[in-house]
């Protein structure tokens, strides 16, 4: 039973967003573009949901950075993907 809970917890944690994008007041930003990047490649862009969250799994080649942008906000410096998850990124106007 305990192991079942463990597996369930693992499945749930793997489905929950790993990145949250918010504005300076802490409000979630929907439809922000998140591009996972290795040193040389870009993965296809993802968009944040209504809670400002997006699920990005580590991949091969290793994802090193996230590029996060949204029209109307300033570009955020590349985000180190190796930080503890979930990562919260603040976009400034």
């Amino acid at each position: 039973m305990r192991s079942l809970f463990g597996i369930l917890a693992l499945v749930c944690s793997s489905c929950s967003p790993t990145v949250f994008v918010v504005d300076e007041a802490g409000r979630p930003i929907e439809d922000a573009k998140v591009i996972p990047m290795s040193r040389s490649f870009n993965w296809p862009p993802k968009e944040t949901d209504e809670n400002g969250g997006v699920l990005v799994h580590q991949d091969l080649p290793t994802i090193d950075y996230l590029q996060i942008s949204k029209a109307g906000y300033r570009n955020h410096p590349l985000v180190n993907f190796n930080l503890p998850k979930p990562i919260t990124v603040v976009l400034k106007k």
Partner: peptide, 9 residues
């Protein structure tokens, strides 16, 4: 290229 830069830097 500009997309990978930021004024915050």
């Amino acid at each position: 290229l500009v997309g990978e830069t930021s004024d915050d830097n």
